[in-house]
Amino acid sequence: MVHMSIESLGYKEWEGEKQGRMYKILSLIEYEVKHAWSSTWIKILIIIAWLPVLIVFFIPPTEINEEGVDRIYYDLISFTTNLTIWLPLMAGLIGGGLIANDKNNKMFSMYFSRPLKREDYIAGKVGSFTALMSIPTIIPALIIYIVIIGKSELSLEVFIKKSWLLGATWLYFFILIVLFGSLVLFLSSVVKDSKYAVVGLFVIVILSDLIANILWVASDNEIYRLGSMTFNLQNIQIEFLGLEQSTIFNARLDELVSPWKSFAVIIGITSAMAVLTLLRLLSLEEE
């Protein structure tokens, strides 16, 4: 083998065209999704999340009648979207390290010494979180819906009539992803280790439920229920999107608090978290 010294190769100049902001954001998303995919825990969670897709193949076609189709669909979907345990765990594992790892690995100086805006960096992180969270939520929801159509002996008109179910499920998942995404990215920007972001997300979800319920019971004032993350999401799920409550995990809600109020609370939390994350990134860069 002929050994070539470093100098003999010489420095080569590069002439090429550089792409714009969207390309850089998409590159960041692609990189993060591939990187997250190397985690065994994330793979396990995603496999579990896809179990309903398997289950739907075992449902006898005779059970999929016009009255029962909503129930079957919703029960399958809610199997992996239980608000208190499953989603915070997935969101934490997927998003907990997105900023914390860059901070620990001192990658900010690599990213921000390049023509990359802080907003684009956050967009890349939000994009990768959304893409990864879609794998256990939005994609199975679509496949389950298609399989139910394929297996049933119902007419196509019935499914066109029921297509709101898929749209509402997607919209609901989107709200969940944005809410948990904003929370977990903020936590990821403040913690040193990504596992604290997972714990932090659980603490927020459970504590908000606990405190809101104690205040509600003690004062008998419904407005305190808006402090509970789970309540707000269920309120939107049931009253706003028209999705039925799952009989497996959750009790039926009282219909006393307007879903618009819950929606406003979620928008408020998401916006506050986005601003705090951006401020945190600015302060991290100054350090």
Binding site: K24, Y31, H35, N105, M110, Y111, S113, L116
Partner: peptide, 26 residues
């Protein structure tokens, strides 16, 4: 930079290429 700033579990080609793409290279 002076300090180490590397992502674990990544080879040198992928690391350098990733940073090239963040700069806007195809």
């Amino acid at each position: 930079p002076e300090h180490d700033c590397f992502v674990p579990d990544i080879d040198a080609v992928k690391y350098v290429m990733h940073l090239g793409r963040i700069t806007g290279m195809l």
